[in-house]
Design a protein around this nucleic acid. Structure first.
Length: 834
RNA sequence: GCGGAAGUGGCGGAAUUGGCAGACGCGCCAGCCUUAGGAGCUGGUGGCCGAAAGGCCGUAGGGGUUCGAGUCCCUUCUUCCGCACCA
């Protein structure tokens, strides 16, 4: 497409900004307010696609706006460089993970530079470098000292064919991704965990602090994820056995008289003992094994057909004394509550379905407060509402709320239970049986047991050249020079931990490193973190609403306890941007629908790409990519370029005092119109930057302004060059955060000596935005019937009078009875007729 | 299954507080300009009726509140995202 020379202009201004060090953030500068603006660090998958570009374009627009507003802006970038795809590439193509990763980083960096994002490149980090990951190890050791890191048995996906642990991503509908006929099993192994549950309440409390700055939906999701619930433990003795009773956890102890069975998870500790001596128990053990060895993916578990079997044992309901069967059920989670639940079919949907399948009785014990009485024989689904208790012994007629309290108290008194608070949140398993991650800095010694690697031996370096096959145990276990070491305590032979860390460790604190990226004494200096934190604005995809953003908050709280930082929340404001879709689905490598950023920049120029991504949808919503839409963006930039190019010559030499007061009094009608439109646009664009970030409407407004300027041609008649220069100059300034290269070029063409990067954001003037008369709409019975122009300060009853006096309105209401007239000043008159 | 969102023209979207539905852009139609057009300029463009003036209908479906509802309430449906080892 013919038009302005985007390639030359973009290269030129990128060079000039670099020479000016325009985007360098200054540590500890107290002469101006600081602003820490952060976009989520990318995984270097190879191509930077439009999803990334959208994230960075939004951030860059805000960074440039904030600099113009006088802030010392920290706007860094780095690479989340460890992870599974690098390892897969190594297995598939024989390229070492480091080589693959670094090549991708170089490629993506080039794209970032090509798009002119205003990063402080001096602070770039890459998490796979020992200078970075040694501090992952350091944090792990601090947590180990504090009892926050510990080992326990836990289930992982296991492919019997590869003989290796599978990530959830590698489990496709319960089958191995490499062997589509091999069902995935699960296997229990010993792994490292971080005690995030110890911070469950702190994480919940922090949510109040974040309200207003974070999207509500993210806070709600986090709250539900932590899932604090008040409930009760109730112990059911086992009929005919002296072994310890089965403890169930329930949030609905008020339904305990409706229990039809006790359900155990297949991994329940008491199960082997219960089954011992029961006829047919060997068949049951097989079923238990089958239930245990299935994909551990939550979605797989939750959507699986409900299955179970009767153990042959019975339990005694401590409230009613009733004997109920003990079953094993596949939908009971071993990790949540006590791994056992009471089955109340009438008042829990899962129990209802289970009871229908296996013919367990349905007993109604709660009658809802509204609607007709429930009858067990007519129910087609469970009734989970609170209500009033029936058939519940001494508790009958209490409300659910009353019963929950009283029953928990009575259970405690009777020694068969107690009220309890539980969380859905689980401890964070960080062990990965993989190569391309941070080695867990632990040594196992026969004499001294589990020992953290001493700080002065950090980093524990990841050995280069480990053999990667995608089969068998952790790759590091096959590197003897890594495994075999010396015990730091006794000096005897010892072995290193061969698992690596979850990459979420890397991304849980990386934003502190940006404040002090080259520190080799500590992860960061306290002073630098204190100056820059909390992050003023974090921008990223909503897919990170839970995991990354909870882990980061957890890290911050631990760091606060360690007195590394004084704040308890790392991120003041969060913005969740929408995804980029192509043909209705998420743009991703696996779907093969990527639009390459470089190709787009070569064809249209990066400013066009930036403009389009901001214009096509508000940033929090999903964006549907359209090739035609981008041509529209290119067209607009060309139009602005031609417009300013045409008039630059006549205004270039004019000196403009940007703060001078313009008097409407001596202005021509054309000038008034242009000045008013300019300041109206500036006001609304400023408000968009300060508020909702709806850059799509900001751009629409600038488009309208440009259309209006164009409509006022010839501009050398009736418009003074000084005013024209102001109007065109403000247009360029407004475009700068979104399309910085062309904006700088236009600004220079207009004869301004300094770059926009050195300029201030122009302040709109309220008095210049006002219209002389305002339009009031007239409705009859709520339907639009006319419009009148009135003075702004017209009184309410006069507005009413003028409206009724309008010829067309008068004709419409003649002879009808007016019931009421609603007047909204400066907006509308609604005449209600009978 | 649990948790979180979203449904407005042919398309992306606009309508910050309950007050002109469809700004702006894409596409399409007509005209101008041009050697040419995948360039530029001008005008039109939700549906139905009408020559026009104008009227009626219209924001996923159904119900409600209100002088007035895309916006608030109830309900149904559909789509998308997350679910702890993808990052």
């Amino acid at each position: 497409m013919a038009g302005y020379d985007s390639q030359a202009i973009e290269a030129k201004w990128q060079r000039i900004w670099q020479e000016q060090h325009a985007f360098d953030a200054v540590n500890g500068d107290t002469s101006r307010p600081k602003y820490y603006l952060l976009e989520m660090l990318p995984y270097p998958s190879g191509t930077l696609h439009m999803g990334h570009m959208r994230n960075y374009t939004i951030g860059d627009a805000v960074a440039r706006y904030k600099r113009m507003c006088g802030y010392n802006v920290l706007h860094p970038i780095g690479w989340d460089a460890f992870g599974l795809p690098a390892e897969n590439a190594a297995i598939k193509r024989g390229i070492p993970p480091r080589e693959w990763t670094n090549a991708n980083i170089e490629q993506m960096k080039a794209v970032c530079r090509r798009f002119g994002f205003s990063y402080d490149w001096r602070r770039e980090i890459s998490t796979c470098e020992p200078e970075y990951y040694r501090w992952n190890q350091w944090f792990f050791l601090r947590m180990l000292e504090r009892g926050l890191a510990y080992r326990k048995q836990s289930r992982v996906n296991w492919c019997p064919e590869c003989k290796t642990v599978l990530a959830n991503e590698q489990v496709i509908d319960g089958f191995c991704w490499q062997h589509e006929n091999t069902p995935v099993e699960s296997k229990e192994i010993e792994q490292w965990f971080l005690r995030i549950t110890q911070y469950a309440d702190a994480l919940l409390d922090g949510i109040a602090e974040l309200a207003g700055g974070w999207p509500d939906r993210v806070l709600v999701m986090q709250q539900n994820w932590i899932g604090k619930s008040r409930g009760a433990r109730v112990r059911f003795a086992i009929s005919g056995m002296t072994t310890s009773p089965i403890e169930v956890f329930t949030t609905r102890v008020d339904t305990v008289y409706g229990v039809s069975a006790v359900l155990l998870s297949a991994s329940h500790a008491a199960l082997p003992e219960l089954l011992a001596g029961i006829p047919g128990s060997s068949g049951m053990e097989k079923q238990v094994k089958a239930m245990q060895s299935r994909s551990v993916k939550a979605a797989d578990v939750a959507t699986a057909e409900k299955e179970g079997f009767f153990t042959g044992r019975f339990a005694l309901n401590p409230f009613s004394g009733e004997r109920v069967p003990i079953w094993v059920a596949n939908f009971v989670l071993a990790e949540y509550g006590t791994g056992a639940v009471m089955c109340v079919p009438a008042h829990d949907q899962r129990d209802f379905e289970f009871a229908k399948k296996y013919n367990l009785p349905v007993k109604v014990v709660i009658q809802p407060l509204h609607g007709g009485p429930l009858r067990a024989d007519r129910m087609s689904e469970a009734s989970t509402e609170y209500g009033r208790l029936v058939d519940s012994g001494q508790y009958t007629d209490l409300t659910s709320e009353q019963a929950i309290e009283k029953m928990a108290g009575d259970a405690a008194e009777g020694g068969f239970g107690k009220g309890e608070t539980t969380y859905r949140l689980k401890d964070w398993g960080i062990s990965r049986q993989r190569y391309w991650g941070t080695p867990i800095p632990v040594i196992y010694c026969k004499n001294d047991g589990i020992i953290g690697v001493p700080d002065n031996q950090l980093p524990v370096r990841l050995p280069e050249g480990a053999k990667l096959t995608g089969q068998g145990q952790s790759p590091l276990a096959n590197v003897p020079e890594f495994v075999n070491t010396i015990c730091p305590k006794c000096g005897g032979a010892a072995e290193r931990e061969t698992d690596t860390m979850d990459t979420f460790m890397d991304s849980s604190w990386y934003f502190y490193r940006y404040t002090d990226p080259h520190n080799d004494q500590a992860p960061f200096s306290k002073a630098n973190a204190a100056y820059w934190f909390p992050i003023d604005q974090y921008i990223g995809g909503v897919e990170h609403a839970i995991l990354h953003l909870i882990y980061s908050r957890f890290f911050c709280k631990v760091m606060n306890d360690m007195r590394l930082v004084d704040h308890r929340e790392p991120v003041k404001r969060l913005f969740s941007q929408g995804m980029v879709l192509k043909d209705g689905v998420k743009m991703s490598k696996s779907k093969g629908n990527l639009v390459g950023a470089i190709e787009m920049a070569d064809k249209y120029g990066c400013d066009t790409g930036r403009l389009y991504t901001l214009f096509a949808a508000p940033p929090e919503k999903d964006l549907e990519w359209s090739e035609q839409g981008i041509e529209g963006a290119a067209r607009f930039l060309n139009r602005v370029y031609r417009l300013i190019e045409k008039h630059a010559g006549s205004v270039r030499g004019i000196a403009v005092d940007w703060n001078a007061r313009i008097a409407f009094g001596d202005a021509s009608a054309k000038e008034k119109l242009l000045i008013r439109k300019t300041h109206q646009t500036l006001k609304r664009v400023t408000n968009d930057f300060e508020g909702r970030w709806h850059f799509n409407t900001s751009i629409a407004l600038v488009m309208e302004l440009v259309n209006e300027i164009h409509a006022q041609e010839p501009l050398d008649q009736g418009v003074s060059p000084a005013i024209l220069k102001q109007v065109l100059g403000i247009t360029a300034l407004m475009l700068y955060p979104m399309t910085p290269h062309i904006a700088e070029e236009l600004w220079e063409m207009l004869g301004n000596p300094r770059t926009i990067s050195q300029e201030k954001w122009p302040a709109y003037r309220e008095d210049l935005t006002r219209e002389e008369q305002i339009e009031v709409i007239i409705q009859i019975n709520g339907r639009l019937r006319g419009k009148i122009l009135v003075d702004e300060d017209l009184a309410e009853d006069e507005t009413k009078e003028q409206a009724q006096g309008d010829a067309r309105i008068a004709a419409l209401i003649a002879g009808k009875k007016i019931v009421k007239v609603v007047v909204v000043p400066k907006k509308l008159v609604n005449i209600v007729l009978q």
